[in-house]
Design a protein around this nucleic acid. Structure first.
Lengths: 234, 234
DNA sequence: CTAAAAAGATGAAATATTCCACCCTTTTGT
DNA sequence: ACAAAAGGGTGGAATATTTCATCTTTTTAG
């Protein structure tokens, strides 16, 4: 594990979406408590933010970068549950009651993250029900994405699932039809729940058919209509 | 849709787990508000409790019975996300902010259900942060099950998935190794994310191998060890 | 009660997917 | 700079899964 760079000043935090949103609900003293108990860290691609099986004492706020949620079944097989980009609250499920992490969260791009002590946040939540509801909503947003992922996985064939992933990355992560994928082919396969060869055959076929242009990490969606159709019939 | 039987008395509610748990957090006036705004309904197998796409104004408390969460993709394909038995809070994701239901919830056995108006509950939540946290935890319990389902679906073959479903039904729904399945073979397939024929071949094979005894709706797990092994290597 | 519809069941052909063997290129560690 | 490891890429054999055709039994609706 490479060394983490710890920032001492609060520059990020004053721009941090979480603090800004919190400011709408909390008083000055509460905001000050929050700011005093916030740690700032940077992660490099590949570094683990939360580790599967650990008990976490902090909530993480992803202010910049891209992370993957992945589950390791203990024997060779690895599974990517989700890919999300900033700004997001990570560890929402652990927000209120402490328990072992069901999966790991690791950086796949350079990430700026603020960590808040769970116990401190819990105290603030107990003082302010409106604030709790707001955070609950944020945490629940992830739930919908998870369900839609599940649906894609459960009732589509591999081509439909890979199409869904490309569309998801384009719409939600990179917000462009042309991007440099931070995932390896193996990771795309772990996200799609299929073999790496199947992903490559699929990408190669779509490149031949001019649906995408794909060369190494560089990926461009040329024909979104057809990709959407593949997703629909998949 | 068959007619719902509406109960006028509060007999169930006074035994209702939800009210009992709420009583630990709320004062007499608040409990009284809750009791005044609670509806009691019975559902028969096949009846829809929440419909996909509807905007729901109520939270449902499943006090007795078994329900399925299912998603209809609009064209022939149907998918079961989960099967749960009482006692459970249904519609937890809708608890705090109103939006369209992502999936339907329907009874697969006779169900006793209490409905609480979302707006009333929201007011109570705003008065009591501790109560909100308790309900949040309850709602989040479902999240873990959903993730474990997802993992099973994503990195196991059909036999592993069907084994997981039998183990899940045995451990969490029927709490016995011998039970009358409320799901049709088609529904088991929709839960496992595979074809109905595949489920039947699998069950037939396991019956030949004395892993299970399966005759129509009656199902008995004879060799849990082997089923667990199939789940592991799946 | 009876006909129709749905569910349970099975085998074989068609298709989708993985696994394996191989090669080349890029990245990583020393 | 160099060797080793990881990633990208491809084709074919082996395997898993679905689709289809067919039949029997059970449930449902009139």
């Amino acid at each position: 594990m490479k060394e983490r760079v710890i920032q001492k000043d609060l520059t990020w935090c004053q721009q941090c979406l979480f603090i800004k949103q919190s400011a709408l609900f909390l008083n000055e003293k509460q905001i000050s408590t929050l700011e005093k108990n916030i740690y700032q860290l940077q992660f490099r691609p590949g570094e683990t933010i939360f580790k599967q099986g650990d008990t976490t004492t902090h909530i993480a706020l992803l202010n910049k970068g891209i992370v993957k949620f992945n589950f390791d079944d203990g024997h060779n097989r690895n599974l990517i549950l989700s890919i999300v980009s900033a700004p997001k609250i990570l560890g929402g499920a652990n927000m209120f009651y402490r328990k072992r992490n069901l999966f790991s969260i690791s950086a796949i791009d350079y990430c700026d993250i603020c960590l808040i002590d769970q116990a401190i946040l819990r105290d603030l939540l107990l003082e302010n029900a409106k604030y709790t509801l707001m955070l609950f909503e944020k945490a629940m947003e992830m739930f919908d994405t998870a369900i839609l992922n599940y649906i894609s996985l459960a009732n589509k064939n591999v081509k439909g699932r890979v199409a869904d992933i490309l569309i998801y990355l384009s719409d939600n992560v990179y917000k462009s039809q042309s991007f440099r994928v931070h995932l390896t082919r193996k990771e795309i396969a772990e996200f799609a729940g299929c073999s790496k060869e199947n992903v490559m055959h699929t990408l190669a076929q779509w490149t031949r058919e001019n649906i995408i242009h794909c060369e190494g990490k560089r990926l461009e969606i040329l024909d979104m209509e057809r990709l959407l159709k593949i997703s629909r019939i998949g």
